[in-house]
């Protein structure tokens, strides 16, 4: 019987070896390991054996079964792997074909600029304030030290609705309103971005509607050097560490002293070129120490409190930073323009 089992084992293993597919293996399993298979038959004939032989043969028969089963198992795994391999090979694709498009939009360049500046000042402890675009003459002018008949009103010809109402010509009224809401002793630390309007004919450098962003800090003992420090931090963040700033005296009715800030020209690095009109500097914003009249009108005692304010034009910053050459681009919403700056 020993020989018979050995022979069956050889036969079976050979058939496993020869099997070409899963069905072939299944046939081998049924043929040799099934209930009617030869091994079962051998085991059935064990009754005829002596008491001593029985366990030996039984053990051997089981070993043979196991070896055949294992061989089938191994072969089956291999065949399945091969089949899968083949199938996957057939499923191969051209990975250079395009992906299915996902529709993704993006922000307007001005929004990106404004939000970048907002985040920068939030980091320095500033709040964001907003105010109405249709303003009263009082907040737009008078509260900012621009009484009726003041020559500086010429500087910003305005869109009036009535004698007392107009489209704001700057975001400064938000400063006056915010200060007015405090009780004359609270700290004001804010920036206010927003749309402003002036009587300008739209061309490459003028727009009757544009964006402004202003900042204000009122506290005890605010120094002009603080303005310089804060603006310097802003300029380095916005334009890069390698840019220098310079302040120049200027004039605004609501600040005294007043300054204009230039940053060193990126194109020539300060040597002078056509972009900076040979000066090495590019004007970027205006500001100064809050005028005592403005403080007084808002209920702050200018002997005790001082402050600084500054204002800039995000369009101008965008134009300088990205080389946009026509301000109208910001408002015609050409899809090719909008999409260029989604990463901005």
């Amino acid at each position: 019987m020993k020989e018979r089992l050995e022979q069956l084992k050889q036969e079976a293993l050979q058939k496993v070896e020869q099997a070409e597919n899963v069905q072939g293996l299944k046939d081998v399993r049924v043929e040799y390991l099934g209930k009617k298979g030869p091994i079962t038959e051998v085991l059935r004939g064990m009754g005829k054996l002596s008491k001593e032989e029985r366990p030996v043969i039984g053990q051997l028969a089981n070993d043979v079964r196991e070896q055949i089963a294992e061989a089938i198992e191994t072969k089956q795994t291999r065949l399945e792997d091969e089949a899968l391999e083949k199938q996957l090979e057939e499923e191969s694709i051209d990975v250079t074909l395009p992906g299915r498009p996902v529709q993704v939009g993006g922000p307007h360049l001005l929004t990106s600029i404004v939000e970048e500046i907002e985040d920068l000042f939030i980091g320095m402890g500033f709040e964001i304030k907003e105010g109405p675009e249709v303003e009263t003459d009082y907040y737009n002018f008078e509260a900012l030290n621009l009484p009726k008949g003041h020559p500086a009103r010429d500087m910003q010809d305005s869109f009036y609705i009535t004698e007392e109402l107009l489209l704001r010509t700057h975001t400064s009224p938000v400063q006056a309103r915010t200060m007015g809401q405090k009780d004359g002793s609270e700290v004001v630390k804010m920036i206010c971005p927003g749309k402003v309007y002036r009587r300008d004919t739209d061309d490459a450098t003028h727009s009757h509607q544009f964006t402004q962003l202003e900042g204000l800090l009122v506290d005890k003992d605010v120094r002009m050097s603080d303005l310089k420090g804060v603006l310097n931090a802003f300029a380095k963040q916005m334009f890069g560490d390698d840019r220098d700033i310079r302040l120049r005296p200027s004039f605004f009715p609501f600040t005294e002293p007043s300054v204009e800030m230039d940053i060193s020209c990126k194109v020539c690095g300060g040597e002078g070129c056509s972009v900076c009109k040979q000066t090495g500097w590019i004007e970027i914003l205006g500001g100064g120490m809050v005028h005592p009249n403005v403080l007084e009108m808002a209920g702050y005692d200018p002997k005790e409190y001082s402050g600084f304010a500054f204002g800039m034009g995000p369009e101008r910053i965008a134009m300088l930073k990205y080389g946009v050459d026509d301000i109208r681009n910001f408002y015609t919403n050409d899809a090719r323009f909008l999409k260029q700056y989604h990463k901005a």
Partner: peptide
């Protein structure tokens, strides 16, 4: 003029 940062009370900025 030197570069300084405001020395007064700090507030948490934010939206």
């Amino acid at each position: 003029l030197p570069f300084t940062l405001p020395a007064g009370a700090n507030q948490a900025g934010g939206l």
